[in-house]
């Protein structure tokens, strides 16, 4: 009986957390569209999320593209299908690898930073101070981060697409001996708009989720340094799991027949 009660308690606790998260997300999203707006804060977040993430995103994408070309070549060579390498690289990068890996890298970099910054503001009463200064913390802290992540993740993924495909091209042409013109032609020939768009839609969703998890866990952190540490860990773990789960759902929505 106590086992069933424990399961029930965990389930109810999960539902309560889900409810709190949904209210937080709704409230935050509503403040994105309602004035006053903070363009300086939005710009700062855009630079932080987009510009400063570019090195890590670029490195991730170029090595992913290179490995993908190498692996698919060695695999396809077993049944004389080396010609499909370019297509496999471009489709894998645009549909899956660029959005997912960019999402995971940004979750580690930005989600953790958001949770730590907002969590520290919470435990040092800076968020309370905002309220006493007649400034809504959702509008000032959360809305610019959500909007910036929503805008910048697709931009980052577009750049990751280009760098990733370029990484595959480098290995294919300079190591595996592919003809550059034929490789590029094969890359373009089978690429459809939906391949790129699905990746960008994923990126937008992932960006929102990363910022939401970072802000939510930071905003509700308590108990000093330990609480902020937990908030940071929870933000990264929950964002990563949500990215992987949503990746499947969006793929299903776009490509299932």
């Amino acid at each position: 009986m106590s086992f069933v009660a424990t399961i029930g308690r965990i389930f109810l606790s999960f539902l309560a957390s889900l409810g709190r998260l949904t209210i937080f997300a709704g409230l935050s999203a509503s403040h994105i569209v309602r004035p006053p707006y903070y363009p300086r804060l939005l710009l700062r977040q855009i630079i932080e999320i987009g510009y400063y993430s570019l090195p890590v995103i670029g490195l991730t994408a170029v090595f992913t593209g290179m490995v993908l070309a190498l692996q698919s070549y060695t695999g396809f060579a077993r049944f004389n299908a080396e010609g499909a390498v370019a297509t496999v690289v471009v489709l894998s990068i645009t549909r899956e690898l660029a959005p997912v890996l960019t999402g995971l890298m940004v979750a580690g970099r930005i989600g953790a930073a958001m949770a730590a910054e907002i969590g520290t503001m919470r435990v040092t009463e800076q968020i309370d101070a905002l309220s006493t200064l007649a400034t809504n913390p959702y509008k000032y802290l959360i809305a610019p981060r959500l909007l910036a992540a929503l805008i910048m993740l697709p931009c980052c993924v577009l750049i990751a697409d280009i760098i990733g495909v370029f990484g595959g091209y480098l290995v294919a042409v300079h190591k595996l001996g592919f003809n550059p013109a034929i490789y590029l032609k094969n890359s373009w020939q089978f690429l459809e708009l939906v391949d790129v768009v699905s990746g960008l839609v994923k990126a937008g969703v992932f960006g929102f989720l990363i910022a939401l998890m970072g802000c939510y866990h930071g905003f509700h952190s308590k108990g000093g340094a330990q609480g902020v540490g937990s908030a940071t860990t929870n933000a990264v773990v929950s964002a990563s799991i949500l990215i992987l789960g949503c990746n499947y759902l969006i793929t299903e929505a776009f490509f299932s027949r």
């Binding site: 520290t120 503001m121 040092t124 009463e125 800076q126 309370d128 101070a129 309220s131 006493t132 200064l133 007649a134």
Partner: peptide, 15 residues
């Protein structure tokens, strides 16, 4: 709140 001012225990400055 525009008519209130508050000094917090730890100052609570925006770092």
């Amino acid at each position: 709140n525009r008519n209130l001012g508050m000094l917090f225990q730890g100052a609570a400055l925006f770092d």
